[in-house]
Simulated assay, not measured.
Amino acid sequence: MSIIDLLKPRPGLRVFVSAGAAGIGLAIAEAFIEAQAEVYICDVNQAAIDEAMSRFPKLHAGIADVSKQAQVDQIIDDARRKLGGLDVL
């Protein structure tokens, strides 16, 4: 078995990615999607979220500023509800 095979996430993981609508965050979300994970992203940019969701129709998303504790609590609760729990943050 190759190192790449060992590093590949198992299918079905429930993944939360903050700042996930663009750049490195979106690349991480895309990698998990390709590995057959259920992915929820959050970001502060609604337009970027909309664009990411148009590229990946199975993606779940919400808007939140992770510097605000109340918004973090709400977005994590929303992700848990939509994905049935979380395995990876």
Rank of each mutant, 00 (worst) to 15 (best):
S2R: 10
S2H: 14
I4D: 10
L7Q: 08
K8C: 10
P11L: 00
P11K: 09
P11H: 01
P11R: 07
R14D: 00
V17P: 06
V17C: 02
V17T: 07
S18A: 13
A21S: 08
G23V: 07
G25L: 00
L26E: 07
A27K: 10
I28H: 01
A31W: 05
F32T: 04
I33M: 01
Q36F: 12
E38F: 14
E38D: 09
D43H: 01
D43N: 00
V44C: 10
A48L: 08
A48G: 11
D50C: 07
D50R: 05
D50N: 09
E51P: 01
A52F: 02
A52G: 06
A52V: 00
M53D: 12
M53E: 13
S54V: 05
P57D: 00
K58L: 13
L59F: 07
L59Y: 07
A61L: 05
G62Q: 09
V66N: 05
Q69E: 15
A70F: 08
V72I: 03
V72D: 02
V72K: 02
D73R: 11
I75F: 02
I75N: 00
I76A: 09
D77F: 14
A79V: 01
R80I: 07
R81L: 01
G84S: 14
G84H: 11
G85W: 12
L86Q: 04
V88I: 15
L89I: 11
